[in-house]
Amino acid sequence: MSTTKESIGFIGVGLMGQGMARNLLDKGFPLTVMGHRNRKPVEELVTAGATEARTPKELASQATIIFLCVTGSPQVEAVLNGPDGIVAGARPGTIVVDCSTSDPGSTIRLAAELEAKGLHLCDAPLGGTPAQAVQGQLSTMIGADDAVFARIKPACEAWAQKVVHLGPVGDGHKMKLLNNFLSMGYGAIYSEALALAQKIGITPQTFNSVLSGSRMDCGFYQTFMKYVLERDRDAHKFTLVNALKDVRYLEGVANAAGVPNPIGNAVKNAYASAVANGRGDDYVPMLSDWIAQQSGVSLAPKG
């Protein structure tokens, strides 16, 4: 069996992508990267041995598997089909792996378009935090046919400790939206509970003394409360504007399926109100401050 590693392209070396790309490099994969606004991650990866491409077309000409870690479906479509896009430079058989949280309908349509051109698109959205990306301890839920999955699995295992093949293209993004509905839903519920608690004389510290270690505790609760209790902005680096995008995509999936999602709508509106008031770049645990402010209380430790 050949041990030759596939040549990897990576577009989007931001909060999650930089750690993922570094793990691919460290595990011996030839790597070409393309950045967006922030030069620092690109320069650090080039120093570590990566090559930089200026356009998706140029990157595609040097890679057999291309990972995308961008904001969502509009960005994926632009990177694929723009004038200097991946499709213009990719060789037949190239696999594009969308690690973004995207709209499954768009993913399935783009996969069919690429297949007609001799290329493959699959979805491998992420579970975990930027810190876990650095450690190679993310999880990924993959929608791909068996042959494509077999090719991408070794590269995914370079940055993920849990790699699950769910089914055909689109299933990864469907599952990711369900996952993010749960996590963003928890964020909205924690925020509302903390605001009410503070209003009736139960401090966040007292609240946490009961919840921490109980059946209601979980990893998401821990990172959320690390911000609430310690004011650690970086405890969970996922922006409110991205959270809103994801719950809006879920709403679209529910609409297309003809399924009511009233709780999903309530969750969406919690994030939408914060984003509409200029808080889009805040991270998810900071939703608690906005919800508390609406009730005339503050969760920040006194003094």
Score class of each variant (00 low, 15 high):
residue 73 S to H: 06
residue 27 K to D: 04
residue 236 H to Y: 10
residue 89 G to N: 07
residue 32 T to F: 04
residue 226 K to R: 15
residue 93 G to Q: 06
residue 299 L to E: 13
residue 39 R to Y: 11
residue 258 G to N: 02
residue 269 N to D: 12
residue 97 V to I: 08
residue 87 V to W: 09
residue 56 P to H: 02
residue 224 F to D: 09
residue 265 N to M: 15
residue 181 F to S: 13
residue 73 S to Y: 05
residue 234 D to W: 02
residue 239 T to G: 04
residue 101 T to R: 08
residue 83 P to K: 05
residue 47 T to Q: 12
residue 289 D to L: 10
residue 81 N to S: 09
residue 164 V to Y: 07
residue 133 A to D: 05
residue 201 G to S: 11
residue 227 Y to C: 11
residue 253 V to M: 12
residue 82 G to V: 09
residue 44 E to T: 15
residue 299 L to A: 09
residue 266 A to Q: 13
residue 35 G to K: 14
residue 147 A to I: 09
residue 250 L to Q: 08
residue 195 A to L: 06
residue 252 G to R: 11
residue 171 D to Q: 14
residue 241 V to R: 08
residue 252 G to N: 11
residue 248 R to V: 15
residue 171 D to H: 15
residue 71 T to Q: 08
residue 163 V to A: 02
residue 165 H to F: 07
residue 28 G to F: 08
residue 93 G to S: 05
residue 186 Y to W: 04
residue 84 D to R: 12
residue 260 P to G: 07
residue 242 N to F: 14
residue 37 R to P: 11
residue 125 P to H: 02
residue 161 Q to A: 14
residue 34 M to T: 07
residue 89 G to W: 04
residue 246 D to G: 14
residue 130 P to V: 03
residue 192 E to R: 00
residue 36 H to D: 03
residue 28 G to I: 10
residue 237 K to F: 02
residue 26 D to K: 15
residue 253 V to E: 11
residue 209 S to N: 07
residue 89 G to C: 03
residue 191 S to F: 01
residue 174 K to E: 08
residue 245 K to S: 10
residue 136 G to W: 05
residue 297 V to P: 09
residue 227 Y to G: 12
residue 44 E to Q: 11
residue 196 L to D: 00
residue 52 E to N: 07
residue 131 A to H: 09
residue 300 A to L: 11
residue 2 S to Y: 05
residue 117 K to D: 02
residue 177 L to M: 11
residue 256 A to V: 10
residue 258 G to F: 08
